[in-house]
Simulated assay, not measured.
Amino acid sequence: MDDPSRNQNLSFPIGRRQVLAAGLAGLVVVSLPRRVLARPSLEEAINTFTGGAEVLDGRVRLELPPLVENGNAVGITIAAESPMTAADHVRRIGVFNEKNPEANVVVFQLGPRCGRAEVSTRIRLATSQVVVAVAEMSDGSFWSSRASAIVTLAACIEDLS
């Protein structure tokens, strides 16, 4: 049998009800403003990639079909004008989109050993939109190219509002 006087000698800083209340408090969902949860705009995504530096047009070629039948697998090729030497090369190429659930598509890390600054991949497009490729050069400059695509069968559709 338990001795009731034995339990009185134990001291707990908080009681059982306080522990339960603290546990339930952890289940409370914090409601964040819609702006915090919203997808960044195309310009905001590019600014994050460049750190706010100026992006110039040219030196980058983005090949994207102007009419896409199925947005689930759209082939793109990005090429940047660069000799790809130790002194003058492409560091990164970022691809961004206007209307997919995520503004960032992919970032390729390059260096002088790549031989040429050209990458190809397939991306998903939620709907007809603009795609932008931005290349960061070894001198810290940023160059870009834009292309539009009309998508007849959309992919990765979520709430795009």
Rank of each mutant, 00 (worst) to 15 (best):
L64F: 05
G51C: 02
V55G: 05
R61D: 08
V60A: 01
R61F: 03
I46N: 02
R92L: 13
P65M: 08
N47Q: 15
L42F: 03
V90G: 08
L67F: 11
P66K: 14
P40Y: 00
A25N: 13
S82I: 04
L42K: 07
N47C: 03
R59V: 00
S41W: 02
L37Y: 05
F49C: 09
G23Q: 14
H89E: 08
D57S: 15
T77D: 06
A53E: 04
A45W: 02
V90S: 03
L37R: 10
L37T: 12
L42C: 07
P40L: 02
R91E: 07
G58M: 09
E81Q: 04
A79T: 08
I93K: 08
H89G: 07
R92H: 12
A22Q: 12
G26C: 12
V55F: 05
H89A: 08
G26A: 08
T77R: 10
P83Q: 11
P33R: 06
A79G: 11
T77K: 15
R61V: 08
E69H: 12
E54T: 04
H89D: 07
A86K: 10
L64C: 09
P65Y: 11
L62V: 03
I46H: 01
S31M: 13
V28D: 10
T50H: 01
I76M: 15
I93T: 06
G71D: 01
G26H: 07
D88V: 11
E69S: 12
L37G: 01
E69G: 15
A80N: 02
G58C: 09
I76K: 15
V60C: 01
R61Q: 11
V29L: 14
L67M: 12
P33V: 08
G23C: 10
G58Q: 06
R39F: 02
A80Q: 03
P65L: 09
I76P: 00
P83R: 12
R39W: 03
L32F: 14
S31Y: 13
N72E: 12
R61S: 07
R34P: 05
I93N: 01
P65H: 11
G52A: 03
I78D: 00
E69F: 12
R61G: 00
T85R: 06
A73P: 10
A21V: 14
N72Q: 10
D57C: 07
R34Y: 09
L32S: 12
N72S: 14
L62I: 00
G23L: 14
P40C: 05
L56K: 15
I78C: 02
N47E: 07
F49S: 00
S41M: 00
L56N: 10
E81F: 00
A38D: 02
R92C: 06
A45R: 01
V36D: 05
R92I: 06
G58K: 10
P65C: 09
A38M: 01
T50G: 00
L64V: 07
F49W: 05
P65F: 09
L37N: 04
L67Y: 11
I46Q: 10
T77P: 03
T85M: 01
V68G: 04
G23I: 09
V30K: 11
D88W: 03
M84T: 02
E44N: 08
S31A: 13
V36K: 04
R92V: 07
D88Q: 14
A22R: 15
L56H: 11
D57P: 04
G51S: 13
G23A: 13
L27H: 12
L27K: 15
L64A: 07
L56Q: 14
